[in-house]
Design a binder for these strands. Structure first.
Lengths: 205, 205, 205, 205
DNA sequence: CAATAAACGAGACGGTACGTCCCGTCTTCAG
DNA sequence: CTGAAGACGGGACGTACCGTCTCGTTTATTG
């Protein structure tokens, strides 16, 4: 969002107040957590942040953009990608962490709303894709690469399909089927995908 | 909606006009297709259906409930489940049909909106679950059962995980990652899941 | 309202139920007294009377007509016109009775609503005029006539103006200025009008 | 409406647009004149004034309050109170002017509706009393005072009753009995009341 | 150091949809 | 044909947000 601000020369007038950015995002996150997306109204954000509505709109062009930012801020810190020496173990831990995040917060509810908005607004779609989807997929691709290099995974693995096979069912349960997401599930998921990808050491014999 | 209505005795007063139901649903479907969920306003539906707003609200308690109904009406006829004699083939055909439906219509856009609404309203969540998710999963479970009986699939298959493995990635692409859904993808999906489930005839040898 | 009913021959089918008339009027009167004119909705009347809406509309063509009927039913029994032997005394007693009626009931509130309706609907205007205004004025005119005959009032009295002078201020306070209406007021009113009308016995001397 | 606004300090935010006030009142007045009270819908006012509904509701809390304002705006300029040197003449002229106003406009129809509303809403009642009734009565009281000072009227006159005696019959005809209001009537009215109030020069003799 | 210019809190603005309520009419089945 | 019941088309109500637009004030940078 906020442009990088052409180092020195150009900017004139009173500079943006960085505290406003923080207060707005904080208010947005709180409202999302407390009342979900429908509770995130621009008026409510402005009031809670102690800020005029124009100050909000100066930074985010509409409600969905702000919600997206607030969501991403939370999501980005949510689920680290470990490097345990085993791809299977890396995915297991990552999916468990993701499941825990979803259980603890309004993650699913907010994501559902944002996903809906992306289907109405291409700009938003790009934001979600680049800052949420692509980032995680890149991390996951790295895990797979390491697994291949290490000989843990087959050389001809289709990383895209594999990642879809891991994330897909999880988001499907999170958003659509609302089925329970526990360790048993995430582990089974990893099993289902990786058992097809793992090298069959006995095969060559 | 429309309970079966205790055959004779109970119903009193002027009966609901079935033509109104049809006109409203038709209007709702058209608006969804033309303008997406945000275009489905109760006023617009009433006007287009040539019906008073009260007549709409008498049948569906709010906008989301009506949209759900309109969506389900369309979705229910959308993707038949074949019985080709092979589970792999059944799934291949089914997923291809589903992909085609999604490509042809505003399926994803509408589903995304409805999924978001289910996260705000438990009644709606039940409706989507029972009339959309569960129905298809039951059909899919049947395909798996037949596959097992026929010896095509392993006896110890976890049907739930398998079905999640098929639908999950598809809906993930449809709703979240917006990646291309083509025959290559759906076929690869079926491969990924079924190759782990298929009996290994050579194994016993 | 209810047509005179062409004695015998013509009427076919199930005859009207006289108890419905009573129940409707009773419900209407109660609602007027409890919630004022705005509380007299046709649905509420029908429910309270234990009657279908069509049954109400068969008897009164609209809400205002029914309210008028209910009002008149109450008003007609409200304020008898005495014959005490003195016009002054007759008016005094009558106005006091009217004031008491207004104090005890929602008379003013309902009348105000009905008056407003008469300005939108000439049929209603005629009803109020003929069944409320004219009736009372005729009675009052009789009192004046008796007073003239008796020598209590001047021979050249303009009865219309006199009656306006008595009723006008009372209804003005009742409807418009909402000022207190007590015995002092009604008596003063009679004084103001009749002192101008009384024969001046000393004059001839 | 519009409080005098604590000179500087307090007012914050964008100030109300005075043109909106004017446009709304204008629209309201026109609608009252064209279609009567029932034609004064908030939607119609907003549309005709080229204003959002919220802008209307920000200023007047409901339909009745707005109608009252529009009525008063018109009524206030309607009937000047002359000072001819004679109380009788002052009243004669004033009542004639009032009658003309009523004949020319929807005065009675609108007043009737507003009077009805005052019986449902005390806030409205106060408004009508203070800004319509009391103002005119005060003017009339002044005329009487001058008449007394000048020796034209009796010293012991009860101004309240006298004023009721003048306005009462007029509003009674206007609202309730709908009888003709012409010069003959208003003049007779003044006669009826003032002839009782005038000093009887011959009396002292 | 004054002028300029943008940002600020506040809140009014035009617009649009919501879901509710009531009107007066119509449609069913029962007597 | 009347009765109770209640659905029907229509249309206004008052509320809530949206995203934009003034206000008067504050705060850096520029001349």
């Amino acid at each position: 969002m906020s442009e990088p601000a052409l180092p020195d020369v150009v900017r004139r007038g009173r500079p943006r107040d960085a505290r406003a950015d923080a207060a707005i995002l904080r208010a947005a996150r709180e409202l999302l957590e407390e009342m979900g997306y429908s509770g995130l109204t621009m008026d409510a954000v402005a009031v809670r942040a102690g800020v005029g509505k124009a100050t909000v709109y100066r930074r985010w062009s509409n409600r969905a953009a702000l919600a997206m930012e607030a969501f991403l801020a939370q999501a980005e810190q949510g689920s680290p990608f470990p490097d345990s020496g085993s791809a299977r173990e890396d995915f297991r831990l990552h999916l468990r962490a993701l499941a825990r995040l979803a259980a603890r917060t309004e993650f699913a509810r907010v994501l559902a709303a944002l996903v809906a908005e992306t289907h109405e607004d291409p700009v938003l779609a790009r934001a979600l894709l680049e800052r949420f989807v692509a980032v995680r997929r890149a991390d996951a691709a790295l895990v797979i690469e390491r697994g291949v290099a290490r000989g843990e995974l087959r050389r001809d693995v289709d990383a895209d399909i594999a990642i879809d096979g891991l994330y897909g069912p999880l988001y499907y349960r999170l958003l659509v089927s609302r089925a329970r997401i526990d360790t048993a599930f995430t582990d089974a998921l990893v099993g289902q995908v990786l058992d097809g990808l793992a090298r069959r050491p006995d095969r060559g014999a």
